[in-house]
Design a binder for these strands. Sequence first.
DNA 1: TTCCGGAGTT
DNA 2: AACTCCGGAA
Length: 369
Amino acid sequence: MPEKNAPQKLPSKDFSRSLLRWYEEAARDLPWRRTSDPYAIWASEIMLQQTQVKTVIPYFLRWLAAFPNISSLAGAPLDDVLKMWEGLGYYSRARNMHKAAKEIMDKLDGRMPRTYKGLLELPGIGAYTAGAVCSIAYNQDVPLVDANVKRVFARILDMEKPVEQTAAAREIRGAAESLIPSGKAGLFNQALMELGALVCTPKNPDCAGCPVSLHCLALKEQTVDSRPVLPPKKKTQALEVSAGVCVRDGKILIQKRLPKGLMAGLWEFPGGKLNSGESPEQALVREFAEELEIDIQCGEKITVIQHAYTRFRVRLHVFWCSMKEPAQTPALHAAEEIRWVLPKELDGLAFPSADRRLIQMLMKDGVPV
DNA sequence: TTCCGGAGTT
DNA sequence: AACTCCGGAA
C-alpha cells in the first residue's frame, strides 16, 4: 500500500537499479575514482569546483605526488601550495585546503573528520564537499546535490519551481536521499553526477540514451527543454531614495526626466539616492542643491513608499519642503524641464508608478497652501 | 576586450 | 542572499 500522505511522487526502486547498472559501464575512468582515500577524494572535489575534468586531472596527479597526505600538505609552506595550484584559479580553494589541513593536524589528531557535521566545520568544505567525502570515501548514506544532480531531478520530477528556491532544494535533497540504495551511496551519487555530465546535459540531453528515461516526468510531459526552470530574476538591489514635494503659492515643483535612460521623459518629484551615512532629509537638501541649485527647507515627512521594479527595490522617503528664498529660479542639471503645477494638473502628466501612488495620496489628503 | 553565467561556500 | 572569480560568449 502506498503511503497516504506521501510527500511527493518518487521514482521506484528500479530508478536506482537502472542508474547503477548504467554507471558500471558508462563511468569514465578518472584518477580519483581509483582511490577511497578521503584526503584524495577531498582534493579532487575541491579542484573540480568550477573546473573541468580534463583540466583537473594533471593537477590532481601532481598534487598528490607533492602532498600525498594531510600531514605533508599541512607542513608545506603556503607558497608551495599556491604554486602547485597555479593555473587552476580560485586560489582561496587552495588556501582553505591548506588551512583545513593544518587544523586537522593541530586539533583533530591528523585524521579527517569522519562525520558530515565534522567535515562542515573545516574551511572551504560546505554541503557539497562534505556529502561527497562522506558518501564516496566513507560510503555513508548521505545525499549529494551538485548542479548536475539538481538538473537531473528537476527533470525526473518535472519540477516547476526554480531549483534555486529553498523549497525546491529541500525536495531534491529529499529525493536524492530516499533513493540511495542502502550501502551504495558512493556509487549512486557518482552515478547521478555522471548522468548529469554525460547524458542529462544542460542543452541537448540524450534522452534516447538515458538509462532512467522511463522514470522521467519531464520527458513524459515534453518539458525537458524547460527544466530546470530558470530563476525568476537577477538579484535585486535595494535603493533608498528621497523625494520632495516642494510647494509655493499652492503649486508643486515637478521635473521632467532626461530623454535617455531609466524612465526617460517621465515627470517626477525632485530628489535622489541617499549617499552612504546620509539621512533622507540630508539627501533631499543636497539633491535640490545639486540638481536645481535651490536651497530648500525640508519639512515634515509625508510618507514612505515602497516600490519594486526590475532589479531594484526602492524605498522612497517623501517630504514636504519649501524654498528658503522663493524668488530663486531652479537650474536644469538632471532634468529636461521643470514646472510649477496645480495639484489637479498632476493627473494629466506621466509619472513613474511610485510617484503616481504618492500623487494619489496627496489628492486624498490635500496640499497645504 | 568586456560581459555574464556558473557552482560552490559563507 | 551575497560573494567569489574564472572562462566562454559576445
